[in-house]
């Protein structure tokens, strides 16, 4: 594109231009996402509401993600128990394994792992589906049918993400604790009663609710980022593929980065 310009200028401007070529698109991505978020938030509260789409997305994000989330959570709880048992045994503090598993699951691993799984599964699906709709003009078709595509497509995903992530996190907390319990009592020979006492005594509703609040944000972030990437995709199948990849990468990053700030904010 710049081939006709004098070589000197190219060399001189190269770093600046390169930086600009990196930054300006990412600024416009951020700007686009914020705009989409604003529209989405407005549309959530104003009719028309597409309930059927919301249910469909809830199934897609929540129900269909359940098996993989549950399997992951149970093994996470199990390995947490295994590892913390080994460590705590050195301090004669094995009875704290239940507490560690419960706190880790509810505060951190439940929300984050669920978020990452949903980002990889439902987020990718969202970006791919919406991207395809974009490049095959289905989104345009929606508009010509007097249907706001953000309302019709993004809002249900957003709501689905916000509702289903906490729901999945509840299950993942529970299953994770069960996984830790089974490994501790069956494999490591911990006292089941002590384990459960330690689990429930030291766990606070706050831990669970803060975890759920985090996952609520994760759900919103996944839906928003994936929808945006889908909407912004161009260039046929290849573009859709790239959008899908970016959606997963950005969602995962958003989860991990916002997790830090949410934790810092929520758990002070």
């Amino acid at each position: 594109m710049t081939s006709r310009e004098p070589r000197k200028t190219v060399t001189l401007l190269c770093p600046v231009e390169y930086l600009g070529s990196l930054l300006i698109p990412s600024f416009s991505v951020v700007g686009g996402m914020i705009m989409m978020l604003c529209f989405t938030l407005r549309y959530i509260f104003t009719p028309p509401f597409y309930l059927r789409n919301i249910f469909k997305q809830m199934v897609e994000i929540g129900v269909n993600s359940m098996p993989v989330v549950l399997i992951t959570a149970s093994f996470t709880g199990a390995v947490l128990a295994l590892q913390s048992h080994t460590a705590f045994k050195r301090f004669d503090a094995e009875t704290l394994v239940g507490t560690v598993v419960a706190l880790s699951m509810t505060r951190e691993l439940g929300p984050v792992l669920t978020g990452l799984i949903v980002a990889g599964r439902a987020g990718a699906a969202m970006a791919a589906e919406l991207g395809t709709m974009r490049v095959t003009e289905q989104i345009d078709a929606l508009e010509t049918l007097a249907t706001n595509p953000v309302r019709y497509l993004v809002v249900p995903r957003f709501i689905g993400g916000m509702l289903m992530l906490p729901a999945l996190t509840v299950l993942s907390d529970g299953i994770g604790i069960m996984g830790g319990f089974i490994v501790s009592t069956r494999v490591l020979g911990a006292n089941p009663t002590t384990y459960m006492t330690r689990t429930w005594d030291f766990l606070e509703m706050e831990d669970i609710f803060h975890g759920l609040l985090k996952s609520f944000f994760f759900g919103a972030a996944i839906a928003l980022i994936s929808s945006y990437e889908g909407f912004a995709s161009e260039g046929g199948a290849e573009g859709v593929g790239k959008a899908t990849t970016r959606a997963v990468v950005l969602s995962s990053m958003a989860i991990l980065i916002s997790d830090y700030f949410l934790s810092a904010w929520l758990f002070k």
Partner: peptide, 11 residues
């Protein structure tokens, strides 16, 4: 009403 060049049917 609009007919798109590639139909743009909802999959």
């Amino acid at each position: 009403g609009m007919l798109f060049q590639n139909a743009a049917l909802f999959d």
